[in-house]
Design a protein around this nucleic acid. Structure first.
Lengths: 218, 218
DNA sequence: CTCATAAACTAGCGGTGTAAGTTTTCATTC
DNA sequence: GAATGAAAACTTACACCGCTAGTTTATGAG
């Protein structure tokens, strides 16, 4: 088949199909040939639209990231904005858990990921956090969200309770984790996020507000 | 070469060499043939000692995990034990960052990872945390540590500052992150961990101590 | 009308994990 | 001590992988 009258592929169609395949079968199951087959095309044809497979994965990862809402940093206090962002971030990642290991390696050249980092950092600085602290806070929350979406604590355990009973006395009930996977993961996230934000709020009053009130214009 | 008089391979030698290769060249660069070559052997010979490549990676991941110190849960208060464990956990992972993406997917059948989960959970329950809360706390800390070791926030950005300057105004200084990578990552971890633990301590006095003092034997 | 570019193709390279079968040595049992 | 079966190396080979090169034809710009 030579060049068709109307293109069979577009970047959007490729990204969309790739995400669907990753969601369905996992990151490891996505090969250029399988992806091409799902698009009704031969493998190398993809390289007319993307230079490498990693470029495809970058595009997939970025479409996942565009769903993250950072609007709170423009309209709410920093603590509320941080909480809303963290939950939105988590929802976006857990909607496509199989791409998370790839995505978690950093924003790199992905526009949506960079825009998100920019919004968070800018919002925190505007709220009075020193730049270095703003960087740390953004990073710490990203650690937490990425880790929570990546590991699915509950799913990480194995189904056979007998495997654990003998050697790990406290994990007797570990197999029950699978049953309540979602509630365990979400509960752990909620608890951890609340604790983190609680600690940050205390730090804020301790450093930022104190410093500002000590200045003449504070 | 038929069966040699003394075995050329042992599980330990395979795991050790695999970890060295992963540390040096990354997870993606570890193939059975390259590993075998480094051991002076042909690829398929590995399958006399491990059933699959994943089994090798499990063993590698477990040797990384054995370095994590959970002894604090036996001798210190829960808050100190949690802090010491988290730092030790982080040190173990950042010593071998390339294996983290694999390791972060859960303890599965790896004994050291399971023993660690067991110690943490047991320590928290012994300190008075309700079992469900102990699970959540262990998971939350694991999220945070794994996320921090995985993402190296600083390394995730790209070296070219011009790429950012135009579109992401607040990331102007982002390229500087690479210079201070270690201090940024460690600072973010320290800040986040302190905040998390601060929040957990508050939660502890609010729930556990209150409940205990309300009981006749409290 | 010309012609460079775009978008599909086919063929193929070097690499991957691993299955199958071979050979020889080691360890155990009669 | 001979027989036997498992162990540990080997070679060969399969199906798949990402990607390159070169071919063909349709499109769109001058």
């Amino acid at each position: 088949m030579p060049r068709p009258r109307r293109p069979l592929l577009t970047r959007d169609r490729i990204v969309e199909t790739a995400l669907a395949l990753i969601d369905a079968d996992g990151l490891g199951a996505l090969s250029t040939r399988r992806l091409a087959a799902a698009l009704g095309v031969q493998g190398p044809s993809l390289y007319n639209h993307f230079a490498t497979k990693d470029e495809i994965l970058d595009a997939v990862a970025d479409t996942v990231t565009v769903a993250v809402d950072t609007s709170g940093f423009a309209s709410r206090d920093w603590l509320t904005a941080l909480r809303d962002w963290a939950w939105s971030y988590r929802r976006a990642l857990t909607a496509h858990p199989n791409i998370v290991p790839y995505l978690a390696q950093g924003p790199g050249r992905r526009p949506a990921a960079l825009a998100m980092a920019d919004a968070v950092y800018g919002g925190l600085v505007r709220a009075g956090w020193p730049p270095a602290r703003a960087t740390h806070i953004g990073a710490a929350l990203r650690y937490f969200v990425a880790g929570s979406a990546l590991g699915s604590f509950a799913r990480g355990f194995v189904e056979d309770p007998e495997l654990y009973a003998a050697h790990y006395p406290h994990l007797r009930q570990a197999h029950r984790l699978a049953e309540h996977q979602q509630s365990v993961d979400e509960g752990a996230f909620a608890l951890g996020l609340d604790a983190l934000l609680h600690g940050l709020a205390a730090e804020y009053t301790r450093t930022v507000e104190t410093v500002e009130s000590a200045r003449p214009n504070g």
